[in-house]
């Protein structure tokens, strides 16, 4: 999964800002969203992202984390911020 060409991500105290500079649209996310963005930026697959977050949030069920990550990634795609061939990539 890759961010589209004009996407810029900046970390902030509250999480992160995602700025799609071609369409001049700004999105904001919390600290959990920031973690997912960082992992996506490092080229992690969906399963690896879920594994990494499950390790960090051991009290939370893996399936719940996976649902949240899938939902977040879907939002990124719907807003043309992220491209991938498949969700399992």
């Amino acid at each position: 999964m890759n961010f589209t060409e004009h996407v810029k991500i900046r970390e902030e105290k509250f999480g992160a800002v995602i700025f799609e500079t071609l369409r001049e649209k700004v999105f904001v996310t919390n600290k959990s969203g920031k973690e997912i963005l960082n992992l996506l930026n490092q080229g992690y697959s969906l399963e690896k992202i879920v594994d990494s977050l499950t390790d960090n949030y051991s009290a939370t069920d893996r399936q719940i984390i996976k649902n949240d990550v899938v939902s977040f990634i879907e939002q990124l795609k719907e807003n043309n911020l992220l491209i991938s061939n498949s969700i399992t990539q």
């Binding site: 902030e12 105290k13 995602i18 700004v26 904001v28 996310t29 919390n30 939002q75």
Partner: peptide, 14 residues
């Protein structure tokens, strides 16, 4: 993803 308040940002976006 939520809306933005410029005061929360550490620097300008543009």
């Amino acid at each position: 993803m939520k809306s933005i308040n410029f005061k929360d940002l550490k620097s300008p976006l543009f």
